[in-house]
C-alpha cells in the first residue's frame, strides 16, 4: 500500500509516495538521496541510522516513513551550513575520531542532540549519550574526546 508523506528534511520541504511498510531510513536514502544515515543492523541496535525527528534522536530504521508525515527531520547532511562544518564535524576530523566512517553520521547526530540539551556534558554523560551507537573500528576514546572538544568550541563561539 502506498501513501503520500510530506516532511521537512534539513529545512527543505518534500512530498513523497512511500510504501506503508517502508522505513524512514529507506525513504531518506532511496526516495530522497540522503545517504548519510546508514543501515548497520536494521534493528535499532547499532545507531548508524540516527537522525533527529522533531528534535528527538531516533533510529530511523525503527520509524516508518509514514510516521514522519508532517515532521522535521535532520540528517548529518544538514549540519554544515554553506560549506562551513559544524564544530562536531571539525572536532571529529581533528581528533581522528573515525576510521571507516560508516558509524560516524550516527555518532555525530547523537552527539549533536546531547550538546543541544546539555552543552557541557561530563565524560560519563557523553559515554551514556553515545551508548546507542556502535563503532567497530576505532573504539570510542577519540569519539568521546571529539565531543568534548566540540563542546568547548561551541562554548567559545557562544
Amino acid at each position: 500500500m502506498k501513501r503520500e508523506v510530506t516532511l521537512q528534511v534539513n529545512g527543505e520541504p518534500y512530498t513523497i509516495i512511500v510504501d506503508t511498510r517502508e522505513t524512514l531510513l529507506d525513504a531518506l536514502r532511496y526516495r530522497l538521496g540522503f545517504m548519510g544515515p546508514k543501515e548497520g543492523c536494521g534493528n535499532g541496535n547499532c545507531g548508524s541510522c540516527t537522525v533527529t525527528l522533531n528534535g528527538a534522536i531516533v533510529d530511523s530504521c525503527l520509524v516508518f516513513a509514514v510516521e514522519a508525515d508532517g515532521a522535521e527531520v535532520t540528517t548529518v547532511e544538514g549540519l554544515a551550513v554553506n560549506g562551513q562544518l559544524h564544530p562536531l564535524q571539525r572536532a571529529f576530523i581533528e581528533t581522528g575520531a573515525l576510521q571507516c566512517g560508516f558509524c560516524t553520521p550516527g555518532f555525530i547526530m547523537s552527539a549533536k542532540a546531547l550538546l543541544e540539551r546539555n552543552p557541557h556534558p561530563t565524560e560519563q554523560e557523553i559515554r551514556l549519550a553515545l551508548s546507542g551507537n556502535l563503532c567497530r573500528c576505532t573504539g570510542y576514546d577519540k569519539i568521546v574526546r571529539a565531543v568534548m572538544a566540540a563542546s568547548e568550541a561551541l562554548a567559545r563561539a557562544a
Partner: peptide
Amino acid sequence: PRIDARAKVTGAAK
C-alpha cells in the same frame, strides 16, 4: 588528518 575525513563527517562519503 585523514584525507577522507571531511566526506565521512558530512555524509558525502559513498
